[in-house]
């Protein structure tokens, strides 16, 4: 037997399907359709569109992150929906603000407590490099990537909500390149 996929329709061929539809639709006759996809596509699609961020903000970038979550910009439009107050339930940590030496071990611990797959966005100059505190500071870690591996860097001081949304979209693109046959190790290449 086997499925005759000569009737299959890709998103490009059918304008009714959204462009990012994760699979193909096969017309099965009698009005019904069969959706065919790969495990990788469907898992990546669902992971990328249900990123749950951790409630974590250490300075002014957090205000901008809250604005991104509020009604005007509303990051729920991109699936980055419910901010979780526990790392056990979060997939994404947006490092929104300065990380000082005393906060370093706390950040590392929160990251370790998150279940895989987990992703990190470094938001703003402080999280990227220490920003305005790079010089002449005795207390600031010069880049959060000295503590945990970072997936996406969003520059700005602080970045506007649009910039953070763009960072989230870039992270989604990155997630969509993953494969369960070769699982990603977030610590790979991180010293």
């Amino acid at each position: 037997m086997g499925i005759d996929n000569s009737n299959s329709v890709t998103p490009e061929q059918n304008p009714e399907l959204p462009k990012d539809f994760p699979g193909e639709v096969i017309a099965a006759g009698n009005g019904g359709n069969i959706v065919v996809t790969s495990i990788d596509t469907i898992i990546n699609w669902s992971r990328a569109n249900s990123l749950w961020p951790l409630v974590f903000g250490t300075s002014c970038c957090a205000i901008e992150m809250m604005a991104t979550g509020a009604s005007k910009h509303d990051w729920a439009r991109f699936g980055t929906e419910v901010a979780r107050a526990t790392p056990r339930q979060a997939d994404l940590i947006v490092i929104a603000g300065t990380i000082v030496n005393k906060m370093g071990p706390v950040l590392k611990r929160l990251y370790d407590q998150m279940a895989e797959p987990k992703y990190v966005i470094a938001m703003g100059a402080c999280a990227i490099s220490g920003g305005p505190f790079y010089y002449n500071s005795y207390s600031v870690i010069k880049g959060a990537d000295h503590v945990i591996p970072v997936d996406v860097y969003v520059p700005g001081c602080p970045p506007r909500p649009e910039a953070l949304l763009y960072g989230i979209m870039e992270l989604q693109k990155k997630i969509k390149t993953e494969s369960i046959s070769n699982p990603r190790d977030p610590m790979q290449g991180f010293i």
Partner: peptide, 11 residues
């Protein structure tokens, strides 16, 4: 006159 050669990057 505080000096910290490890943490402080002088400008």
């Amino acid at each position: 006159d505080y000096v910290d050669e490890i943490n402080i990057v002088e400008l």
